[in-house]
Design a protein around this nucleic acid. Structure first.
Lengths: 138, 138
DNA sequence: CTTGACCTTACAGCTACTTTAAGGTTTAGG
DNA sequence: CCTAAACCTTAAAGTAGCTGTAAGGTCAAG
């Protein structure tokens, strides 16, 4: 199976697959006589695994760890559990930060009249913080 | 005012300020006799503006737009409003995606017994999606 | 007059790819 | 049989948004 078919099956695209091979995330694919990469079910499952894991928010390095555990028959589920838990916590954190940012943006949008006038509370608001700054400074 | 003081006041750090100058986000700072960059209130307000805008989630290119509007006396608040509104929408979207990801992660963590056994539903889960895939394929 | 803290430039490194360039192979059509 | 399109190959550069390094110049304190 050529790389583009492997790409379709795994949900990755061909360049990305080559990239993963290049950085040693997946083992180099076997080659056909013409030098083309040749993929089989075994490879596809690893590529799909990576795709899923990346979608789920794991970084490349985290995927590397997960893949090693995936391939290791003597793995301990504790290790995997800890990895996932920590990731979940970090995502929760990120959500918190984005929510705050969203509130800021909504407040900014509301503060602006949208009437074509040159006055705009948004820009004033963004510029604001610094005014107090120089007065109190040395 | 030297760059490190400007950094303190604006909340950016010196390398970042130089970087912003380099990519043309801010106009090059005037220089002292010794060649050091020299910052005044006018520059600080722009740097602070950028810092706030970046914190609020605007990309460098968006900051460039906002800054141009900020500096333009004939700007129209509509334009700014649209920019902010669109950004707010995109952030809301990102929050949605992260929430889905978080649910996935929590579900994964729960599915795993954390008992040191080699079986781990997490890895099975990540690997899963592909099984169905080959059967239906050519 | 030396030490340390600042400043300068230019360039490499980071993540996770995507794009480009320059070429070889295969396949379908005329 | 030839050609054009659609694949495949590699290596290298570009993307965002900085951060860190190297190799030097400047300045204030003791």
């Amino acid at each position: 199976m050529n790389i583009s078919e492997a790409a379709k099956h795994s949900g990755l695209n061909p360049q990305t697959i080559r990239y993963y091979e290049q950085i040693g995330l997946v083992t180099p694919a076997r080659r056909q006589d013409n030098g083309y990469r040749d993929y089989r079910a075994h490879d596809l499952s690893q590529l799909s695994f990576i795709h899923r894991a990346r979608e789920t928010g794991f970084s490349i390095e985290e995927c590397r760890e997960l893949l090693e555990l995936y391939r290791d028959p003597s793995r301990q589920s504790q290790h995997v559990h800890a990895l996932v838990q920590e990731k979940a916590d970090r995502v929760a954190d990120q959500i918190k930060r984005l929510k705050a940012m969203h509130q800021d943006l909504v407040a900014l949008a509301r503060s602006c009249q949208d009437d074509g006038a040159p006055q705009c509370a948004i820009l004033d608001n963004l510029a604001d913080h610094h005014e107090n700054d120089l007065e109190g400074a040395s």
